[in-house]
Design a protein around this nucleic acid. Structure first.
Lengths: 363, 363
DNA sequence: TTGAAAGCGCTAACAT
DNA sequence: ATGTTAGCGCTTTCAA
């Protein structure tokens, strides 16, 4: 690896001149000098060391991304979008860490970022409290948090980007209601986070608006296993099997997210029930995998790409401290994608054929 | 951020003493001194800068990982396993880059790693030639490549870790044959890579050994779209629809991988065919999502965790140049997971019920 | 228009 | 047992 010294020597100039061309200050020199330096750089295949530069400037083009688990397709899809924007628009690379819902792992990740001199991080945390996140911000990091809202009252250093969970669940529930369902359920996992609460509220709001509040229920399939691959899908599967075995059961279910919905469908099937013949299901997320399911899953599409873009832009260009009010950005769902996991309820529960129809997105 | 100087001052010692404790050379000092230094470190919340250390030592605890796309669940699962091993066993963090089958993006990733002083990278490349990879190795990087074999004759600097693709496809095909299938197909995408060729060879070998070589065919669903989310699943879906519309069709299909199989099942369904009633399907990979499919996908499980471990170990402890022969490590498939996407062929093609059975793994 | 030199925070000889 | 010091490769005043 050649250094700036080698280039300077080769070009017969000083290191500062080379540094100037590296940093675009080419107006300070004769075109001829510039040419010599560029030739030397080319000849030596010189690449400036980001390390040395960082030691001097304190800046490094690296973005941290903390996710609960890369095995969850929703998170890896978000990661993919974040990487694309960070790279193409800002020339940043991504350092990814999985926390597996472990506070110690989250804290360790922030520590490592600091030690590496990284100043920007996007956090997708499954944890209830945002303490570590705020601590990182207090230590000088620019942090953007996904799918959480600032705790009311406590002024927060961190910017929050999230889907409108209330509206997403409301949309999903309303679709079931529009199809004639009256026995509604919201399927979730044990434990409340802000985003889960918002979804439940949206579910309840839709049910109550339709006069169905009394029968609408929230069911959970138990806690998330920290390290499993399929995690939430397994919980869904368990729950589906349990519902299939129960005497009373809802005719329409809104799932916490698509992975849960996929698990639910499998569990219901395990229990001998048909979707949507016996039970209708709506997911939330819009994973591409949901289109592959049998029956294809009706789901509320979240604007992942737009949220990813917003997160990267915010982490790269943080708001001035004055604009502390506009720290939260909420994205409306992109719409309901009607596929084939929802049908009108029926005592007989007729099975539907699964013709292929193009997906329809309702704005 | 406090520095080693601050600690030295606070503890009333020199920086080298502090450096010594940071690097575990505690035997060179009085316990009392050690205690003072540790107290100072704690009081200041001091974290040594990895940047400064790296500038000095040339080492950084960062591992590069190049994947075709994080949106593919197989790659994100491998990434997850690699991250776990790298972090827990070696204290390394992961810098991930997606190449989207673009040679320029791959090259740019290697350049960035070099500029960041990173010396280790694991490459999962979808590209046909390994030129960039060898170039990176020549520039001094330790590179481990997944699912490729060294080009025979050309001595390679890079270590290769891969599943036994031939055997995986052979196992899958044999299962179809054992179930009575005689009209066999291997479903792939356009373009040959080493691993695809190996799978095709395994498919052919099994068919020929059963005297079914004449009718066994390889079909492809066209080229991969570079940037799509679902990529290979879409190709599978197209292919499935095409096969459903054809007059002659195989009764048993081995898919290139699970995602392709999931797409195929959807495409076949779009075309009005039933799996496994009309067509049986076997995948290769063993994604957890395959267990959620309807019908649950019979597939050959690849030992992802073991391969990930091997890759990390190799990239952390490269072989001495002498052992150039043992650079390739091939992993046998973990076994066939029998689920419900395979049934005996029948002219009438009876639909099966999908009772839930525990998965069986055949060693 | 160009160069000299200080210093970012750390490590590791080499003193003492 | 502890301290002094010379860099690692770069950026950036400040001088020439």
């Amino acid at each position: 690896m050649s250094t700036i010294q080698d280039v300077a020597r080769q070009a017969g100039v000083s290191v500062s001149t080379v540094s100037n061309v590296l940093n675009g200050r080419t107006d300070r020199m004769r075109p001829e000098t510039l040419a010599r330096v560029e030739a030397a750089i080319g000849a030596l295949g010189f690449r400036p060391s980001k390390i040395a530069r960082q030691l001097k400037t304190g800046q490094t083009p690296l973005l941290g991304l903390l996710v609960p688990s890369l095995a969850n397709p929703m998170y890896s899809f978000i990661a993919r979008e974040i990487e694309t924007v960070a790279q193409e628009r800002f020339g940043y690379r991504l350092l990814i860490g999985s926390a597996y819902r472990d506070p110690a792992k989250e804290a360790a990740f922030f520590d490592d970022l600091m030690a590496h001199g990284m100043r920007r991080v996007i956090v997708i945390s499954a944890l209830a409290d945002e303490q570590h996140v705020e601590a990182a911000a207090a230590r000088g990091m620019v942090v953007v948090s996904y799918d959480r809202r600032a705790t009311p009252g406590q002024p927060s250093q961190v910017c929050h980007v999230m889907p409108d969970n209330f509206e997403a669940a409301r949309l999903a529930t309303q679709h079931l209601i529009d199809c004639g369902h009256t026995r509604l359920a919201f399927a979730t996992v044990a434990g409340l986070t802000l985003s889960r609460s918002a979804k439940i509220a949206g579910f309840r709001a839709a049910a109550e608006a339709a006069g169905l509040g009394a029968s609408a229920q929230v069911v959970d399939g138990g806690p998330l296993d920290e390290y499993g691959d399929s995690v939430i899908a397994e919980v869904g599967r368990t729950l589906g099997a349990r519902m299939a075995a129960a005497t009373e059961r809802p005719s329409g279910i809104v799932a916490l997210n698509d992975l849960m919905a996929l698990g639910l469908m499998a569990g219901l099937r395990d229990g001998g029930l048909r979707v949507p013949g016996d039970v209708s299901i709506v997911g939330i997320d819009g994973l591409f995998l949901s289109a592959l399911a049998n029956p294809p899953l009706t789901t509320v599409q979240l604007p992942v790409r737009e949220m990813a873009r917003a997160m990267v832009e915010r982490v790269m260009n943080p708001l001035p401290d004055a604009d502390i009010d506009e720290r939260d950005i909420v994205f409306a769902p992109a719409g309901l994608i009607e596929r084939e996991s929802v049908a009108p309820p029926g005592p007989a529960g007729e099975a539907r054929t699964h013709e292929s129809e193009p997906d329809k997105v309702e704005p």
